[in-house]
Design a protein around this nucleic acid. Structure first.
Lengths: 159, 159
DNA sequence: ATATAATCTAGAGTTAACTCTAAGTCAACC
DNA sequence: GGTTGACTTAGAGTTAACTCTAGATTATAT
């Protein structure tokens, strides 16, 4: 089985432009061409494409993905380098997910902030008396609710 | 208490250039100026800055963050819009974290793939006999190990 | 008082990752 | 056999988010 650039683009839900750009950047050295110079992707190529898509999603720059593909093409001498590369980006992704979890926590507290303001009809219930400044105790109140067992996700839910 | 742009930049670990850029894009309409035209950040401004940093981390484009700040400056009439904005980006962030979890799973399976190749001294242990194509059963083997209770994270760990 | 450092604006430059255009080739269908 | 659509390359254009420069002003430290 072999596939045209358009078929691969459809399968991966990315544009043919992007695939050609990746090729230009050295990400697709494994792709064959037919007599007319058109790209013919093999079944096994999807193993590489899967990795490329994964690294992209993980936030690895195209240039670095190219370096990984280079290692792949070089052979068994680079197995350790490839392992280290993946371990490095695994750690980076774990760190990023931890940061995003904090971001999500913050978003949920702010949602609760607006839910309660909405129910009161005014944001000023969260202000220090006689000012336009948010009372730091409000965040502490939310944290106490969570510590007491409430779900941060449902606390901010309207209805 | 008030703070210069440099002090705020240090606290948020972003450059003064970036803060001025945000101001230019309408993200900092709440910041005061002194007689000489220099920015003076108030304590309460950090409530806005916190939100800006959070939305940035969540992947919200600067332009959209500006729209949210606009809502904030308009007053209580926009409370629902602000709630909806946060709820929308909460959902998007949850979806992104689910995708990243899949990405992390994939990275770990590939790490195990290279760990086992490394221990065998050659990647070819994963190929279909007499080819250079990866045997699809290899991924299935990894999945079985995980289904049988092994940790995907430690399975790929070297040592 | 003076040198150094921080700030200001307007606007130019940079970078990554596409995204598209132009001009041409090739394949599939009626 | 002709038309339509997919493909090719080289290279230009786009977009977001900075990042910096230049030239001027202001604040801080000796």
């Amino acid at each position: 089985m072999s596939y045209s650039i358009g078929e691969v683009a459809d399968k991966l839900a990315i544009s043919p432009y992007t695939l050609r750009y990746y090729d230009k950047e050295g990400l697709l050295p494994f792709v064959d061409r037919n007599a007319a110079g058109r790209r013919r992707f093999k079944d096994n190529d999807f193993n590489f494409l899967e990795v490329i898509v994964c690294l992209k999603e993980a936030g690895v720059p195209v240039k670095q993905i190219g370096e990984f593909i280079d290692l792949c093409m070089t052979g068994d001498a680079t197995l350790q380098d490839r392992y280290d590369f993946l371990a490095d980006h695994e750690a980076k992704l774990e760190a990023k997910m931890a940061r995003l979890q904090h971001t999500l926590d913050f978003l949920r507290w702010k949602k609760w902030y607006y839910k309660t303001a909405l129910q009161a009809g005014t944001e000023s219930i969260h202000y220090l008396p006689g000012t336009n400044q948010v009372d730091p105790a409000v965040h502490a109140t939310f944290n106490r609710l969570v510590a007491d067992g409430a779900s941060p996700k449902t606390l901010g839910e309207l209805n």
